[in-house]
Amino acid sequence: MLKVIAACGNGMGSSQIIKMKIEKVFKKLKIDVQIHHTSVGEAKTQASSYDVVFCSEALKNNFAQAEKSGTIIIGLKNLLSEQEIEQKIAENIVDKK
């Protein structure tokens, strides 16, 4: 099971929306995940204990340290696009298995 964080600036609305969207795409791809949503500040401190972090493309640089430790950081240009989420999952997770 993959451990995933959905992060946004405040950890409220946007991260919940990202969580719902990525949950739907992972389910479609039949990939078992556990998803937590939170603020970028909290996610930065926890990211290295997760397999994947989803956030806005603009916030991706906040996770450089976690990326060095092996966490996959996925920046999204359109947080509502299931097509973009599916493409990024394919490129960063499915193709690397």
Rank of each mutant, 00 (worst) to 15 (best):
K3M: 12
A6Y: 10
A6N: 07
A6T: 14
A6M: 11
A7L: 13
A7G: 14
G9N: 09
G9D: 12
G9R: 08
N10P: 03
M12C: 06
G13M: 15
S14Y: 06
S14E: 15
S15R: 09
S15C: 11
Q16A: 14
I18V: 12
K19R: 09
M20Y: 06
K21C: 13
K21E: 04
I22M: 15
E23H: 07
K24N: 11
K28H: 13
K28R: 15
L29P: 04
L29G: 13
L29I: 10
K30Q: 07
K30P: 03
I31F: 06
D32T: 12
I35T: 10
I35G: 02
H36Q: 12
H37D: 01
H37S: 07
T38H: 10
T38W: 06
V40R: 03
E42N: 15
E42Q: 12
A43D: 05
K44I: 10
T45M: 08
T45F: 05
Q46S: 09
A47V: 09
A47C: 08
S48A: 08
S48V: 09
S48P: 05
Y50Q: 03
V52S: 04
V53G: 04
F54P: 01
F54T: 05
F54I: 02
C55Y: 05
C55Q: 02
A58F: 08
L59W: 01
N61D: 15
N62G: 09
A64V: 13
A64I: 08
Q65Y: 05
A66T: 12
E67D: 12
K68E: 14
G70I: 08
I72H: 04
I72W: 04
I74H: 00
G75A: 12
L76W: 06
L76V: 08
L76N: 04
K77N: 14
N78S: 12
N78G: 09
S81T: 10
S81P: 04
E82R: 07
Q83S: 13
Q83W: 11
I85E: 00
E86W: 02
E86M: 10
Q87V: 09
K88E: 03
K88Y: 07
I89G: 01
A90N: 14
E91P: 00
E91L: 00
E91I: 01
N92V: 01
I93V: 01
D95W: 04
D95S: 11
D95I: 02
K96P: 00
K96A: 00
K97F: 15
